[in-house]
Protein backbone atom coordinates (compact mmCIF):
# COMPACT_ATOMS: atom_id res chain seq x y z
CA UNK A 1 0.00 0.00 0.00
CA UNK A 2 1.29 3.45 -0.87
CA UNK A 3 1.52 5.70 2.12
CA UNK A 4 1.55 9.46 2.08
CA UNK A 5 2.02 11.91 4.86
CA UNK A 6 -1.36 13.05 6.22
CA UNK A 7 -0.67 16.68 5.35
CA UNK A 8 0.01 15.77 1.72
CA UNK A 9 -3.12 13.66 1.57
CA UNK A 10 -5.30 16.42 2.94
CA UNK A 11 -3.69 19.10 0.79
CA UNK A 12 -4.32 17.01 -2.30
CA UNK A 13 -7.97 16.58 -1.36
CA UNK A 14 -8.36 20.28 -0.60
CA UNK A 15 -6.78 21.23 -3.93
CA UNK A 16 -9.44 19.22 -5.69
CA UNK A 17 -12.22 21.22 -4.03
CA UNK A 18 -12.04 24.32 -6.28
CA UNK A 19 -11.97 22.10 -9.37
CA UNK A 20 -15.09 20.26 -8.25
CA UNK A 21 -16.82 23.52 -7.43
CA UNK A 22 -15.94 25.08 -10.80
CA UNK A 23 -17.26 22.08 -12.69
CA UNK A 24 -20.41 22.04 -10.63
CA UNK A 25 -21.12 25.76 -10.89
CA UNK A 26 -20.64 25.59 -14.66
CA UNK A 27 -23.09 22.71 -14.89
CA UNK A 28 -25.65 24.52 -12.77
CA UNK A 29 -25.13 27.75 -14.71
CA UNK A 30 -25.86 26.00 -17.99
CA UNK A 31 -28.69 23.85 -16.66
CA UNK A 32 -30.59 26.86 -15.36
CA UNK A 33 -30.34 28.67 -18.68
CA UNK A 34 -31.40 25.61 -20.63
CA UNK A 35 -34.57 25.25 -18.60
CA UNK A 36 -37.62 26.58 -20.43
CA UNK A 37 -38.97 29.82 -19.03
CA UNK A 38 -36.91 32.75 -17.85
CA UNK A 39 -37.05 34.99 -14.81
CA UNK A 40 -37.97 37.81 -17.12
CA UNK A 41 -41.22 36.05 -18.04
CA UNK A 42 -42.08 35.49 -14.42
CA UNK A 43 -41.15 38.96 -13.28
CA UNK A 44 -42.82 40.87 -16.07
CA UNK A 45 -46.13 39.07 -15.84
CA UNK A 46 -47.37 41.93 -13.69
CA UNK A 47 -49.70 41.47 -10.73
CA UNK A 48 -53.31 41.21 -11.79
CA UNK A 49 -53.16 43.70 -14.65
CA UNK A 50 -54.04 42.46 -18.09
CA UNK A 51 -51.22 43.36 -20.37
CA UNK A 52 -51.21 43.21 -24.12
CA UNK A 53 -48.71 40.98 -25.82
CA UNK A 54 -46.72 44.00 -26.91
CA UNK A 55 -46.59 45.45 -23.41
CA UNK A 56 -45.56 42.06 -22.07
CA UNK A 57 -42.68 41.61 -24.43
CA UNK A 58 -41.54 45.18 -23.82
CA UNK A 59 -41.57 44.44 -20.11
CA UNK A 60 -39.62 41.25 -20.64
CA UNK A 61 -36.99 43.03 -22.68
CA UNK A 62 -36.63 45.68 -19.96
CA UNK A 63 -36.30 43.09 -17.21
CA UNK A 64 -33.87 41.00 -19.25
CA UNK A 65 -31.72 44.01 -19.79
CA UNK A 66 -31.82 45.02 -16.15
CA UNK A 67 -30.76 41.51 -15.07
CA UNK A 68 -28.12 41.21 -17.79
CA UNK A 69 -29.95 38.26 -19.33
CA UNK A 70 -29.96 39.85 -22.78
CA UNK A 71 -26.19 39.35 -23.04
CA UNK A 72 -24.75 36.33 -24.90
CA UNK A 73 -24.44 33.28 -22.64
CA UNK A 74 -20.63 33.37 -22.77
CA UNK A 75 -20.58 36.94 -21.51
CA UNK A 76 -22.97 36.05 -18.73
CA UNK A 77 -20.81 33.06 -17.84
CA UNK A 78 -17.60 35.06 -17.71
CA UNK A 79 -19.27 37.69 -15.55
CA UNK A 80 -20.56 34.94 -13.27
CA UNK A 81 -17.08 33.45 -12.94
CA UNK A 82 -15.51 36.83 -12.33
CA UNK A 83 -17.97 37.50 -9.52
CA UNK A 84 -17.45 34.01 -8.15
CA UNK A 85 -13.70 34.53 -7.86
CA UNK A 86 -14.41 37.65 -5.82
CA UNK A 87 -16.78 35.53 -3.71
CA UNK A 88 -19.69 37.60 -5.00
CA UNK A 89 -22.59 35.26 -5.57
CA UNK A 90 -24.84 38.01 -6.81
CA UNK A 91 -28.33 38.91 -5.61
CA UNK A 92 -31.68 37.26 -5.88
CA UNK A 93 -33.79 38.44 -8.83
CA UNK A 94 -36.61 38.78 -6.35
CA UNK A 95 -36.17 41.43 -3.70
CA UNK A 96 -32.48 41.72 -4.49
CA UNK A 97 -31.31 40.04 -1.28
CA UNK A 98 -27.65 39.10 -1.60
CA UNK A 99 -27.24 35.37 -2.16
CA UNK A 100 -24.48 35.25 0.45
CA UNK A 101 -26.89 36.75 2.94
CA UNK A 102 -29.56 34.18 2.07
CA UNK A 103 -27.02 31.37 2.43
CA UNK A 104 -25.80 32.74 5.75
CA UNK A 105 -29.32 32.18 7.01
CA UNK A 106 -30.06 28.91 5.25
CA UNK A 107 -26.79 27.02 5.41
CA UNK A 108 -26.61 26.80 9.21
CA UNK A 109 -30.18 25.48 9.23
CA UNK A 110 -29.27 22.78 6.72
CA UNK A 111 -26.07 21.90 8.57
CA UNK A 112 -28.04 21.52 11.78
CA UNK A 113 -30.59 19.34 10.05
CA UNK A 114 -28.12 17.08 8.26
CA UNK A 115 -25.79 16.73 11.23
CA UNK A 116 -28.60 15.78 13.57
CA UNK A 117 -29.97 13.40 10.92
CA UNK A 118 -26.52 11.90 10.55
CA UNK A 119 -26.18 11.50 14.30
CA UNK A 120 -29.57 9.77 14.56
CA UNK A 121 -28.81 7.56 11.56
CA UNK A 122 -25.41 6.55 12.92
CA UNK A 123 -26.82 5.83 16.36
CA UNK A 124 -29.71 3.73 15.03
CA UNK A 125 -27.70 2.10 12.28
CA UNK A 126 -24.65 1.19 14.33
CA UNK A 127 -26.62 -0.16 17.27
CA UNK A 128 -28.96 -2.27 15.16
CA UNK A 129 -26.16 -3.36 12.81
CA UNK A 130 -23.94 -4.50 15.66
CA UNK A 131 -26.79 -6.27 17.43
CA UNK A 132 -27.85 -7.98 14.19
CA UNK A 133 -24.29 -9.16 13.55
CA UNK A 134 -23.79 -10.47 17.07
CA UNK A 135 -27.14 -12.27 16.92
CA UNK A 136 -26.63 -13.50 13.38
CA UNK A 137 -29.19 -16.01 12.24
CA UNK A 138 -31.65 -15.31 15.07
CA UNK A 139 -35.04 -13.60 14.84
CA UNK A 140 -33.38 -10.42 16.14
CA UNK A 141 -31.06 -10.41 13.14
CA UNK A 142 -33.88 -11.18 10.76
CA UNK A 143 -36.12 -8.41 12.05
CA UNK A 144 -33.30 -5.85 12.16
CA UNK A 145 -32.53 -6.63 8.54
CA UNK A 146 -36.17 -6.45 7.51
CA UNK A 147 -36.72 -3.10 9.22
CA UNK A 148 -33.48 -1.83 7.67
CA UNK A 149 -34.51 -2.85 4.17
CA UNK A 150 -37.97 -1.36 4.53
CA UNK A 151 -36.65 1.90 5.98
CA UNK A 152 -34.09 2.47 3.28
CA UNK A 153 -36.60 1.62 0.60
CA UNK A 154 -39.00 4.32 1.77
CA UNK A 155 -38.64 7.58 -0.13
CA UNK A 156 -38.03 10.70 1.93
CA UNK A 157 -41.13 12.51 0.80
CA UNK A 158 -43.31 9.58 1.83
CA UNK A 159 -41.67 9.37 5.24
CA UNK A 160 -41.85 13.13 5.64
CA UNK A 161 -45.53 13.33 4.79
CA UNK A 162 -46.22 10.36 7.05
CA UNK A 163 -44.40 12.13 9.88
CA UNK A 164 -46.33 15.32 9.31
CA UNK A 165 -49.64 13.49 9.32
CA UNK A 166 -48.98 11.26 12.31
CA UNK A 167 -47.04 13.49 14.70
CA UNK A 168 -48.22 16.89 13.51
CA UNK A 169 -51.83 16.39 12.52
CA UNK A 170 -53.13 13.33 14.37
CA UNK A 171 -51.13 13.30 17.57
CA UNK A 172 -50.27 17.01 17.53
CA UNK A 173 -47.03 16.28 19.40
CA UNK A 174 -44.65 18.18 17.21
CA UNK A 175 -44.66 21.29 15.06
CA UNK A 176 -44.29 20.49 11.38
CA UNK A 177 -43.59 23.82 9.74
CA UNK A 178 -40.50 25.96 9.99
CA UNK A 179 -37.44 26.03 12.17
CA UNK A 180 -38.48 27.95 15.27
CA UNK A 181 -41.81 29.22 16.62
CA UNK A 182 -42.68 32.66 15.23
CA UNK A 183 -43.40 33.92 18.70
CA UNK A 184 -39.86 33.19 19.78
CA UNK A 185 -37.66 36.22 20.03
CA UNK A 186 -34.52 35.03 18.23
CA UNK A 187 -31.83 37.33 16.90
CA UNK A 188 -29.25 35.15 15.20
CA UNK A 189 -25.55 35.74 15.78
CA UNK A 190 -24.25 32.73 13.86
CA UNK A 191 -27.63 31.33 12.81
CA UNK A 192 -26.66 28.04 14.46
CA UNK A 193 -29.33 27.95 17.12
CA UNK A 194 -27.41 25.73 19.51
CA UNK A 195 -24.32 27.89 19.18
CA UNK A 196 -26.33 31.06 19.61
CA UNK A 197 -28.04 29.61 22.68
CA UNK A 198 -24.60 29.28 24.20
CA UNK A 199 -23.20 32.57 22.90
CA UNK A 200 -26.26 34.56 23.92
CA UNK A 201 -26.70 32.54 27.10
CA UNK A 202 -30.27 31.62 26.20
CA UNK A 203 -30.77 27.94 27.11
CA UNK A 204 -34.53 28.33 26.56
CA UNK A 205 -33.87 28.33 22.79
CA UNK A 206 -32.73 24.71 22.78
CA UNK A 207 -35.99 22.92 23.50
CA UNK A 208 -38.19 24.60 20.86
CA UNK A 209 -35.34 24.26 18.36
CA UNK A 210 -35.14 20.52 19.00
CA UNK A 211 -38.92 20.14 18.81
CA UNK A 212 -38.90 21.66 15.34
CA UNK A 213 -35.81 19.83 14.20
CA UNK A 214 -36.48 16.33 15.43
CA UNK A 215 -39.15 15.31 12.92
CA UNK A 216 -37.38 16.42 9.71
CA UNK A 217 -34.08 15.08 11.05
CA UNK A 218 -35.61 11.69 11.86
CA UNK A 219 -37.30 11.57 8.46
CA UNK A 220 -33.97 12.18 6.84
CA UNK A 221 -32.17 9.77 9.17
CA UNK A 222 -34.39 6.72 8.81
CA UNK A 223 -33.51 5.64 5.32
CA UNK A 224 -29.85 6.25 5.96
CA UNK A 225 -30.09 4.30 9.22
CA UNK A 226 -31.37 1.31 7.28
CA UNK A 227 -28.44 1.51 4.95
CA UNK A 228 -25.94 1.91 7.79
CA UNK A 229 -27.48 -1.08 9.57
CA UNK A 230 -26.67 -3.31 6.64
CA UNK A 231 -23.15 -1.98 6.18
CA UNK A 232 -22.37 -2.21 9.90
CA UNK A 233 -23.75 -5.74 10.11
CA UNK A 234 -21.62 -6.90 7.18
CA UNK A 235 -18.54 -5.13 8.47
CA UNK A 236 -18.87 -6.47 12.01
CA UNK A 237 -19.45 -10.00 10.73
CA UNK A 238 -16.32 -9.78 8.67
CA UNK A 239 -14.20 -8.51 11.54
CA UNK A 240 -15.66 -11.16 13.88
CA UNK A 241 -14.00 -13.77 11.68
CA UNK A 242 -10.60 -12.12 11.92
CA UNK A 243 -7.77 -13.83 13.78
CA UNK A 244 -7.19 -11.02 16.24
CA UNK A 245 -10.71 -11.46 17.58
CA UNK A 246 -9.77 -15.01 18.52
CA UNK A 247 -6.65 -13.56 20.14
CA UNK A 248 -8.84 -11.21 22.16
CA UNK A 249 -10.94 -14.16 23.34
CA UNK A 250 -7.76 -16.08 24.13
CA UNK A 251 -6.80 -13.26 26.47
CA UNK A 252 -9.83 -14.09 28.54
CA UNK A 253 -11.67 -10.88 27.71
CA UNK A 254 -15.42 -10.89 28.24
CA UNK A 255 -17.39 -10.89 24.99
CA UNK A 256 -18.48 -7.29 25.54
CA UNK A 257 -14.89 -6.12 25.77
CA UNK A 258 -13.95 -8.18 22.72
CA UNK A 259 -16.65 -6.44 20.72
CA UNK A 260 -15.99 -2.97 22.06
CA UNK A 261 -12.22 -2.91 21.97
CA UNK A 262 -11.45 -5.15 19.04
CA UNK A 263 -14.40 -5.70 16.72
CA UNK A 264 -15.99 -2.27 16.64
CA UNK A 265 -12.91 -0.19 16.03
CA UNK A 266 -11.88 -2.41 13.18
CA UNK A 267 -15.37 -2.29 11.71
CA UNK A 268 -15.34 1.50 11.54
CA UNK A 269 -13.27 1.93 8.38
CA UNK A 270 -15.81 0.69 5.83
CA UNK A 271 -18.57 2.33 7.83
CA UNK A 272 -16.91 5.75 7.72
CA UNK A 273 -16.41 5.46 3.97
CA UNK A 274 -20.08 4.79 3.51
CA UNK A 275 -21.04 7.61 5.85
CA UNK A 276 -19.03 10.09 3.78
CA UNK A 277 -20.65 8.97 0.55
CA UNK A 278 -24.09 8.76 2.11
CA UNK A 279 -23.76 12.33 3.30
CA UNK A 280 -24.28 13.28 -0.34
CA UNK A 281 -27.61 11.54 -0.55
CA UNK A 282 -28.46 12.98 2.85
CA UNK A 283 -27.99 16.46 1.37
CA UNK A 284 -30.15 15.44 -1.56
CA UNK A 285 -32.73 14.18 0.88
CA UNK A 286 -32.59 17.40 2.83
CA UNK A 287 -33.78 19.29 -0.25
CA UNK A 288 -36.94 17.19 -0.27
CA UNK A 289 -37.34 17.04 3.48
CA UNK A 290 -36.89 20.79 3.92
CA UNK A 291 -39.56 21.38 1.33
CA UNK A 292 -42.00 19.00 3.02
CA UNK A 293 -41.46 20.67 6.39
CA UNK A 294 -41.07 24.22 5.00
CA UNK A 295 -37.76 24.24 6.80
CA UNK A 296 -35.77 27.34 5.85
CA UNK A 297 -32.58 25.64 4.73
CA UNK A 298 -30.52 25.57 1.57
CA UNK A 299 -32.82 22.90 0.14
CA UNK A 300 -35.88 25.08 0.41
CA UNK A 301 -33.89 27.96 -1.02
CA UNK A 302 -32.83 25.77 -3.93
CA UNK A 303 -36.33 24.50 -4.72
CA UNK A 304 -37.81 27.99 -4.54
CA UNK A 305 -34.97 29.30 -6.68
CA UNK A 306 -35.51 26.68 -9.34
CA UNK A 307 -39.26 27.26 -9.48
CA UNK A 308 -38.79 31.01 -9.84
CA UNK A 309 -35.81 30.68 -12.20
CA UNK A 310 -33.84 32.71 -9.70
CA UNK A 311 -30.45 31.91 -11.24
CA UNK A 312 -28.11 33.46 -8.65
CA UNK A 313 -29.92 31.77 -5.77
CA UNK A 314 -29.85 28.34 -7.44
CA UNK A 315 -26.18 28.71 -8.31
CA UNK A 316 -25.33 29.79 -4.79
CA UNK A 317 -27.35 27.07 -3.13
CA UNK A 318 -25.88 24.36 -5.34
CA UNK A 319 -22.37 25.63 -4.62
CA UNK A 320 -23.04 25.62 -0.91
CA UNK A 321 -24.30 22.03 -1.00
CA UNK A 322 -21.33 20.90 -3.08
CA UNK A 323 -18.91 22.64 -0.77
CA UNK A 324 -20.50 20.95 2.23
CA UNK A 325 -20.27 17.56 0.56
CA UNK A 326 -16.63 17.88 -0.46
CA UNK A 327 -15.62 19.20 2.96
CA UNK A 328 -17.35 16.28 4.66
CA UNK A 329 -15.44 13.89 2.46
CA UNK A 330 -12.14 15.59 3.25
CA UNK A 331 -13.08 15.18 6.90
CA UNK A 332 -13.73 11.49 6.23
CA UNK A 333 -10.26 11.13 4.76
CA UNK A 334 -8.78 12.78 7.83
CA UNK A 335 -10.82 10.47 10.02
CA UNK A 336 -9.28 7.45 8.30
CA UNK A 337 -5.90 8.60 9.44
CA UNK A 338 -7.14 8.87 12.99
CA UNK A 339 -8.72 5.43 12.82
CA UNK A 340 -6.09 3.40 11.06
CA UNK A 341 -2.40 3.70 11.87
CA UNK A 342 -1.61 1.65 8.76
CA UNK A 343 -2.59 4.62 6.60
CA UNK A 344 -0.27 6.99 8.42
CA UNK A 345 3.28 7.18 7.28
CA UNK A 346 4.98 4.08 8.66
Amino acid sequence: MRRSRPAVLVARRLLAVPVVLLALSTAVFLAMRLLPGSPATALSAGGGQTLTAAELSANQARVSQALGLDQPILTQYLRFLGDLVRLDLGSSFYGSNSVLGLLAGALPATIELTLLAMAIAVLLGVVSGVVAALRKGTWIDASARTVATVSFSLPWFALGVLGVVVFGVWLRWLPVIGRLPNALDYHPTTNFVLLDAILQDRPELVLPWLRYLILPATTLALSMAGFITRIVRASVLEVLGDDFVRTARMKGLAEGAVVRRHVLRNSWLPIVTVLGLQFGSLLGGSVITETVFSYPGVGSLLVKGVLQRDYPVVQGAALAIALLFTLVNVAVDLFYLVLDPRLRKG
Partner: peptide
Protein backbone atom coordinates in the same frame (compact mmCIF):
# COMPACT_ATOMS: atom_id res chain seq x y z
CA UNK B 1 -4.89 -15.90 28.97
CA UNK B 2 -3.90 -16.54 32.57
CA UNK B 3 -3.27 -20.26 33.16
CA UNK B 4 -3.43 -21.43 29.58
CA UNK B 5 -2.46 -19.13 26.73
CA UNK B 6 -2.12 -19.53 23.00
CA UNK B 7 0.51 -18.17 20.65
CA UNK B 8 -1.08 -18.13 17.23
CA UNK B 9 0.57 -18.56 13.91
CA UNK B 10 0.54 -15.62 11.51
CA UNK B 11 1.06 -12.92 14.11
CA UNK B 12 0.20 -10.18 11.64
CA UNK B 13 -3.38 -11.44 11.49
CA UNK B 14 -3.50 -12.44 15.14
CA UNK B 15 -2.55 -8.99 16.42
CA UNK B 16 -5.06 -6.18 16.32
CA UNK B 17 -3.82 -3.80 13.57
CA UNK B 18 -5.17 -0.74 15.36
Amino acid sequence: GKDITVVFQDALAALNPL
